[in-house]
Amino acid sequence: MSNFLTVNIGRKFIMSISGIFLILFLLFHMSMNMVLVFSAEGYDMICEFLGANWYALAGTLVLAAGVVIHILYATILTLQNRAARGTDRYAASNRTVTEWSSKNMYVLGLIVVLGLLLHLYNFWYNMQYAEIAYGHDGYEVPAGSKIVGDLFVQPLYVAIYLVWLAALWFHLTHGFWSAMHTIGWNNKIWLDRLKVISNIVATIIIIGFAVVPVKFLIFK
């Protein structure tokens, strides 16, 4: 175990575990969003239930740690991989046929991070952060459904969020099966199956997230 975090496979293992943890969070987040499609009242109850309670804060910290670790190791590995290619680059453009997303995970990840920053500003800052900062002064945090509704009546925001989700879709279609492969849970038979499962998981997550902004844009 001594040098586990200095070898490539050890670092990739950290990427896989943190990645799968983030996929589980996305599924959790998406299920909560789905409530808003059916009932604004139900969604506001969830917002209130989470808010700035100790368990929500603890969960937020664990989640933030997961995001930071995933990005940190992605950066370390990307720099290390670039160095491994050497100083002289190939002159002829690469003609090996490969999955596009697999070669652009870091760039896709950067788009996801940019979207995430906007998302935190749009929602987290007005919801959990507002409650942490001003909650004790008797400040009433606006209802979650109202914050969501006010944002997504603006077509520009809906467009930005859809682009963000598209980048996330590409990231996840490669990310899920790749994580399983790195952990070692793969073989000749499961390789194709995991790729299908990967596409299904990514599509379910992205459609689930896209439904809310599209619903507010169309039905106000």
Binding site: V7, N81, E99, S102, T182
Partner: peptide, 20 residues
């Protein structure tokens, strides 16, 4: 695995270019 790392080879991103 330790030796491979020491020699400066990169990590696997599962792009499958090697297999191709």
């Amino acid at each position: 695995v330790n030796k491979m790392n020491e020699l400066g080879f990169g990590a696997c991103t599962n792009t499958r270019a090697c297999e191709a």
